[in-house]
Design a protein around this nucleic acid. Structure first.
Lengths: 217, 217
DNA sequence: GGCGAGCCTTGTCCCAGATCAACGAGGCGG
DNA sequence: CCGCCTCGTTGATCTGGGACAAGGCTCGCC
């Protein structure tokens, strides 16, 4: 990884109203190459991160190599905020990417307790939300429902447009608690049902949003 | 449900140092019978809760009835704190139980911003921690590992003592993403391996903590 | 433009766990 | 004390998704 450039810290610990703006003022921009580690499991968690461009995944690995992806983070999303002193997942660059990094204590000092807390609180809540949805997916959904939910989530509200998958099949599989083969088969199946349309392995379009929503349960 | 008795609110919004103490000062004690609903999915989340005695489960149900248990809460644990305006899981009494209930806004006003935030923050972080561990369990562990992990978690550090399961097999199954039959079989298997010892369906003792830890991955 | 090297897909077989179906074993009310 | 009712266990069978094994595609590199 390499340092791109450093943004000067504000001179005084004045209140900065816009919490989302804090990071850009205080952070250091760093570049990571695809698959490069951003932080490791059990490392100290005194830095917080925000994706500027590209995407990031967090993962946890069992002793025998089975891997679970916790979450994917895209543009402007924060990650790496932990409750305890160290990270419970590791984070890696999903694609080549640029990430804003700031020291938590510095942020707090420079931005004020309040603004800092709003920032961290909203990020944590968002995290919890997504983790709980993910929990339901892993606990009770079928392979087909998992894949359908995943595509829905990625495409959000742009139903007609083409979307590019920033990750390969293995990453999808490890997020969904499946194997690459099963993911691939379900994608083929969804195409066969004319619910989604693929142009190459990484580019898709939702052809029938209602059907997809139904299949995602 | 029935009102047991109300604790008087403190007269002034002074700082109360001990965050864990806030609820007992401000809360209303309520009793719930086994399987009674404490709050429902999508209801307003303006109340926060703490288990006094008994135990509570949070659940989420898919349209066709498949159920996922989010978490079990035992003595002194808080639950029901949400990021958004409404609950994403519903909560039910796992056993007959007593619960402290307080209005979030009242707590905040009476206890002070700081103490309130510490309280909510620690509860949320704890929640996230447990949800992430649960995620790994559901995504990548085998049936046997899930059951072993679950027993480990329940027994915590009292390796020799007898522990009572507050929930039935169905609740275990819905927490672990399995069926009752599979849970039952895994328990039998663990007993056969002399790792745990059951006295009746609800009482067990960890006979070999190291083996159990190994099996939990 | 040819040729690897990764990915992705597809086929086949297999197995962990689900489903279906009895069968016990406590526990409680009568 | 008996019978019933709920919950848990066990057995038999089935199946969704995993494991293994070939191919195909794409894209970058020579």
């Amino acid at each position: 990884m390499s340092l791109a450039h450093t943004v000067a810290a504000p001179s005084a610990p004045t209140q900065i109203a816009d919490a989302a703006d804090l990071m850009s003022r205080m952070g250091v921009k760093m570049q990571f190459a695809k698959d490069e580690e951003i932080y490791g499991q059990d490392e100290d968690a005194d830095l917080i991160y925000r994706v500027v461009s590209g995407a990031v995944r967090t993962t946890r690995v069992l002793s025998d190599g089975r891997r679970q992806i916790g979450e994917f983070y895209y543009g402007d999303e924060m990650f790496g905020i932990e409750s305890g002193p160290n990270h419970r997942f590791s984070a890696e660059a999903l694609t080549d990417c640029t990430v804003l990094v700031a020291k938590a204590s510095a942020l707090k000092a420079a931005a004020g307790q309040d603004a800092y807390e709003r920032l961290v609180w909203s990020a944590t809540n968002n995290e919890l939300d997504r983790t709980q949805a993910h929990l339901l997916l892993l606990g009770r959904k079928t392979a087909c429902e998992r894949v359908a939910s995943f595509l829905m989530g990625l495409a959000q509200r742009r139903s007609g447009e083409a979307v590019t998958l920033p990750m390969g099949r293995q990453d999808m599989a490890d997020y969904l608690g499946l194997t690459i083969e099963t993911v691939s088969r379900m994608l083929t199946q969804l195409q066969g049902a004319l619910v989604v349309e693929f142009a190459g392995a990484r580019q898709f379009r939702i052809a029938d949003p209602h059907a997809l929503a139904r299949m995602a349960e």
